[in-house]
């Protein structure tokens, strides 16, 4: 399972920069970042190296951080690759709350992050469908 940090931010100029600066100064490397926004605030979702340490430094700097478990899969880089993954989840009755993707320079495909209500069950459904579900060690240096 992948530990994603979710950070609550008010919509103020420079606030996202402050978050990145705190992580940068602590030598935490981000692998992916996604911002969900409303008119007044946003939730920043981060996949990074050493998430436990990242959470500590962010909280120490006054950010509200919560840890969310998400699943990550490597999706073949060809038309219909993602559709197949989502179909497996849909057939099992699993609803995707949100998803985003990024490309690993060393890999052959794209990496997709999914937030589902029951990540264990989703992993099993994907496994059974022949999709490789990535572990923490595949994406970052797990520190817990």
């Amino acid at each position: 399972m992948i530990r994603q940090l979710s950070v609550f931010l008010e919509n103020n100029p420079g606030r996202l920069a402050e978050l990145c600066r705190v992580l940068g100064d602590a030598e935490v490397n981000m692998r992916a970042l996604m911002v969900a926004d409303t008119a007044e605030y946003g939730v920043v979702r981060v996949i990074c190296d050493t998430p436990v340490r990242a959470q500590e430094v962010l909280e120490g700097a006054g950010f509200g951080v919560s840890v969310t478990e998400v699943i990550a899969v490597e999706v073949p880089d060809r038309p219909g690759g993602l559709a197949h993954v989502l179909e497996l989840l849909g057939e099992d009755g699993l609803n995707v709350e949100y998803a985003y993707c990024f490309v690993e320079p060393s890999g052959t495909g794209a990496i997709d992050i999914f937030r589902v209500e029951d990540p264990e069950r989703a992993s099993r459904a994907l496994d059974a469908g022949g999709i490789r579900v990535l572990g923490a060690a595949d994406l970052y240096r797990a520190d817990a």
Partner: peptide
């Protein structure tokens, strides 16, 4: 203030 322990990952929960 959102409580420090609130799981604010999802926008719909915040709303």
């Amino acid at each position: 203030e959102v409580g420090p322990d609130f799981a604010f990952d999802e926008i719909k929960a915040l709303e």
